[in-house]
């Protein structure tokens, strides 16, 4: 890790999943902020020094889940968003990376790495 630590905000409603992701991404060397609600996400994004990636539970921010994404894109266009949701979930616009939420969190890790360093191949 010669480069400065990247900061992630992990937004997830389920506390167990949230803590697992905090642990897993912490192990990878990221600085991790967690949020259990849309309001927390917004407060982290406004207050934190820098946020490199937002991992967003697709169902967060209301029952339709999609209300938060356009708002984030308007207020924090510099923060890339990885949408973590169930298959068939079609929230969000074209500019957002999507990862299917199943048991395999390695896939989420790969996507976050790719978002942080575009141009680098998956892996």
């Amino acid at each position: 890790m010669d480069r400065p630590r990247a900061t992630l905000v992990i937004a997830e409603r389920n506390a167990n999943i949230r803590e697992l992701l905090r642990r897993e991404f912490g192990r990878e060397g990221y600085a991790v902020l967690t949020a259990g609600s849309g309001a927390e996400v917004l407060s982290h994004l406004s207050l934190a020094e820098k946020v490199d990636v937002l991992v967003l539970d697709a169902e967060m921010g209301g029952p339709d889940g999609s209300a938060l994404v356009p708002q984030l894109e308007r207020s924090f266009p510099q923060v890339p968003v990885v949408l973590h949701g169930f298959a068939g979930f079609e929230a969000g616009e074209g500019g957002v990376a999507r990862v299917e939420k199943d048991g395999d969190f390695e896939r989420l890790k790969r996507t976050v790495r790719r978002v942080l360093r575009p141009g680098e191949a998956n892996g």
Binding site: N14, N16, I17, L20, F86, K101, G103, D104, F105
Partner: peptide, 14 residues
Amino acid sequence: IRNPLTSVKMRLFS
């Protein structure tokens, strides 16, 4: 049901 189920799956994977 899907949400806790996903949590279980992740823990199993871990």
